[in-house]
């Protein structure tokens, strides 16, 4: 029996097909967010992996910012519950999850069953979010996906003091004109994200083990600095970006067996 989880985020859509609530059958990511063709595309893409039909799906659960507008779902859940459940599926020992999404940062504490115990989110400000990294990548003219590797090559981290995206932008530009190394600048940008995220994580309390989910978890530079800031190792699964969709598929399975 198959369940399908779709995570329609602000900058990307993710989907996972789960067999019997236990085995990942197919996964797909489309780098388009809610309000675009991303949701439809990711659905087609994930079904195509093993040549499945939508009718094969016993239950479809959607999450993410586009969860209310997606037709054809059996139910919807918040991305927090889905991330919690998804990470629990990947790493059952994890009790603290940090998720950096396109426009939200979330710090979550979960119990052994993957149920949320508490959570905090950033205020309405792009500081420290995926959006912040997008803006910075654009200014220094590199691909956002390359930031992680670039940042790891830093020899002397540049201090980016502003948290406001607009001010940080001008600060980065002035550092650029002062001809600092791009690698050092990127590390500085990562440090600023790590500090912001760490503060949120501390506010929610950190219980080991800690994992990161969401697309920014793929940025090794941010993860390394965040580990430094919170003084703990952070687990990152190769499917970290899919945690929300995976959790949605798990929850869909559970809804069938309630």
């Amino acid at each position: 029996m198959f369940t399908l989880g779709i995570d329609i985020g602000s900058t990307a859509c993710k989907a996972v097909i789960l067999q019997d609530g236990a085995r990942v059958e197919a996964r797909a990511v489309v780098p388009l967010g809610t309000g675009t063709s991303g949701a439809g595309d990711v659905l087609q893409k994930v079904l195509a992996v093993k040549n499945r039909q939508i009718e094969d799906m016993e239950r479809i659960l959607v999450t993410g910012y586009g969860r209310f507008t997606f037709a054809g779902a059996d139910s919807q859940k918040s991305e927090l519950s889905c991330h919690a459940r998804g990470v629990n599926f990947l790493f059952p020992s994890v009790r603290t999850i940090i998720d950096i999404g396109g426009q939200d940062i979330k710090a979550m504490r979960v119990n052994a069953k993957g149920f949320l115990e508490n959570f905090v989110m950033n205020d309405k400000c792009a500081a420290g979010t995926g959006k912040f990294l997008d803006v910075m990548a654009r200014i220094i003219n590199v691909k956002v996906n390359d930031l992680g590797e670039i940042g790891l090559k830093a020899t002397e981290e540049v201090n980016i003091s502003n948290t406001c995206t607009v001010f940080a932008e001008s600060e980065v530009i002035s550092k650029l004109s002062a001809a600092v190394r791009i690698e050092d600048l990127v590390a500085g940008i990562h440090r600023s994200v790590a500090k912001r995220v760490a503060s949120l994580a501390f506010r929610n309390g950190i219980v080991p083990e800690v994992a990161m989910s969401g697309g920014v978890a793929l940025n090794k530079g941010v993860v390394a600095l965040l580990e430094e800031e919170i003084k703990r190792n952070i687990l990152v699964h190769e499917d970290c970006q899919l945690a929300g969709a995976l959790g949605a598929a798990v929850l869909a399975y559970e809804e069938l067996h309630k």
């Binding site: 910012y65 927090l80 519950s81 949320l116 959570f119 309405k124």
Partner: peptide, 21 residues
């Protein structure tokens, strides 16, 4: 609570999650 902005999706997400918790 902010009178100057439209209610964001964040409040919805937080409240939904809260109920789920």
């Amino acid at each position: 609570i902010d009178q100057s902005t439209e209610n964001s999706g964040q409040a919805r997400t937080k409240l939904q999650t809260f109920v789920e918790m």
